Amino acid sequence: MKKLVQFTLFLALVAFAPSCTAALPETERSTPAASSPADDKLQDPVALGGWGPERPTFRQDSPADYITLNSLTKSSWGDERNFLQVKNKDSPNSEYTDDLEVAVGKTYTAILMYRNAASSRIATPAENTAMRVMAPGSIKGAGEINGFLQASNSNPLEVWDSVVIRLTDPASEVALRYVPGSAVIHSRGRVNGLPLPDELYTTGTPIGCDQLDGRLFGGEETCTGYVTFDFILDQPNFTVTTLGKSPQNHELTPSISARVGDTLEMRGEYKNTGTTLQNDVVMDLNLPAGMEMVSNNMKIANSATDGTYKSVSEQTANTLLPGILNIGSYKPGGSCYIKFSVTIHDVPGYDFATSGQVYRYPEIYVHTNNGSKVSFLRVKVLGPLQ
């Protein structure tokens, strides 16, 4: 028997948007920069799953003599206390279960069964019968979805059941999103095939036999049915890479050597590696004293430029020193590249001729609605005569 637990967070809505992608715009050999994952701490394990409350149960051939919801243990459904289950929609042969391993980017279907377990001799229907769903906006490692069925004159007034969804990586954190328009009621009554509103995921929505009026009679097969809806797991993420080359380095790399007076070729790259749309992505370039951007030299490549580099106006390029450049919105898989040149000047106070000065610059910051990241080019600057 499942353990009884409580559940408090709402299932969020997901919006789908057009893609904004671009492949590497031209043949540019490069050595990728190394990256390391965040050091997340695991949450303490908690008890998940369950149904409730405890209540008397009945058989289909011996129903209740009062109004009660989902209380048959030997029906065509089986034990109706276990009325919520999920499956992988992307796998046609998958089966419904109440404990499922899930993955980012996959779509899943939930099913919620409903019945007034009262005998047909009870003329009064369950009144104001409604169903609602609650789920966390995000889960880390594991989480649960709860379904509730209630009526104003049933005993008990409300019953609930939950399913557990687990990530392969217990340290991973993802967002759980409802797929808009996917909630549908299924029955042998006239409500069969009707869509249900988004109130299913907040205050609840009425169900019924011949119409969605909240009236559910006992002993009527046309009044027994189920609701299905889809949800997806999202994980926002992105990468930022800064590469460069000098007259002494013929490949784009994250670490180069140069001399005072050299002009460096730079490339900054943003990629949406997650599963959510990122709007109004901003690139911010930070140069140290002694490095100056070559005027009117910046170019940008993304889907808006058909994947080819196009010049950024001198005015826009100059706002990067200091300032920001809004590069647009990007669907999962989308990317953007910027190219520009900087010239190294002598800097008072540094003795380049002795051992060289290592700059942790230029820095490229990327700001998104899911956070910010920075990438830098390590430049060892030598004196002009070395």
Rank of each mutant, 00 (worst) to 15 (best):
Glu199Ser: 14
Glu173Thr: 09
Thr203Leu: 05
Ala175Arg: 11
Phe229Asn: 02
Asp210Asn: 07
Thr228Tyr: 04
Val227Trp: 12
Thr224Ser: 13
Asp213Phe: 02
Gly204Met: 02
Gly189Ser: 09
Thr241Glu: 10
Thr222Met: 07
Leu216Ile: 00
Gly204Cys: 05
Asn237Cys: 00
Glu199Thr: 14
Asp230Leu: 10
Phe238Gln: 13
Gly208Asp: 11
Phe229Trp: 15
Gly181Asn: 15
Leu176Cys: 08
Gly214Trp: 00
Gly225Ile: 02
Leu176Asn: 05
Asn237Val: 02
Val184Ala: 05
Leu243Pro: 01
Val174Lys: 02
Phe231Glu: 10
Val184Met: 10
Pro195Asp: 13
Pro206Asp: 09
Thr222Asn: 04
His186Ala: 04
Glu221His: 08
Gly208Trp: 03
Glu220Met: 06
Val227His: 10
Thr239Ile: 09
Tyr178Cys: 06
Pro236Gln: 11
Pro236Leu: 03
Val191Tyr: 07
Glu173Trp: 07
Val184Asn: 06
Asn237Ile: 01
Leu216Thr: 00
Ile207Ser: 08
Ala175Asp: 08
Tyr226Asp: 01
Val240Glu: 10
Leu200Val: 05
Thr241His: 07
Leu194Thr: 07
Asp234Ala: 15
Asp210Leu: 04
Thr242Glu: 15
Gly219Val: 01
Tyr226Val: 00
Gly218Arg: 06
Ala175Glu: 04
Gly181Lys: 12
Leu196Arg: 13
Val191Glu: 01
Gly219Cys: 12
Thr203Asp: 14
Gly225Pro: 03
Gln235Lys: 14
His186Lys: 14
Gly219Thr: 02
Cys209Thr: 12
Ile207Glu: 10
Leu212Met: 13
Asn237His: 11
Cys223Phe: 03
Leu194Glu: 06
Thr224Asn: 13
Gln211Ala: 15
Asp213Glu: 05
Asn192Trp: 08
Arg215Asn: 01
Pro236Ala: 11
Gly189Met: 09
Glu220Gly: 09
Ala183Lys: 03
Asp234Thr: 05
Arg188Val: 01
Ile185Asn: 00
His186Val: 06
Leu212Ala: 07
Glu199His: 08
Tyr201Leu: 10
Tyr178Phe: 14
Thr202Gln: 12
Arg190Phe: 14
Ala175Thr: 06
Tyr201Ile: 01
Gly193Thr: 14
Gln211Ile: 09
Gly193Gln: 03
Arg188Gly: 15
Leu194Lys: 07
Pro195Trp: 13
Asp213Gln: 04
Ala183Arg: 02
Phe229Ser: 02
Ala183Cys: 12
Val240Trp: 15
Phe238Thr: 09
Gln211Met: 10
Leu212Asn: 04
Val184Glu: 04
Gly244Cys: 11
Gly208Thr: 03
Val240Lys: 02
Gly181Met: 04
Glu173Lys: 05
Val174Gly: 10
Gln235Met: 03
Asn192Cys: 12
Pro180Trp: 14
Gly204His: 15
Arg188Ser: 11
Phe238Asn: 07
Thr222Ile: 11
Asn237Ser: 13
Thr241Asp: 12
Tyr201Gln: 09
Val191Asp: 01
Leu194Trp: 14
Gly244Asn: 13
Glu199Leu: 06
Phe238Asp: 13
Ser172His: 11
Arg215Asp: 00
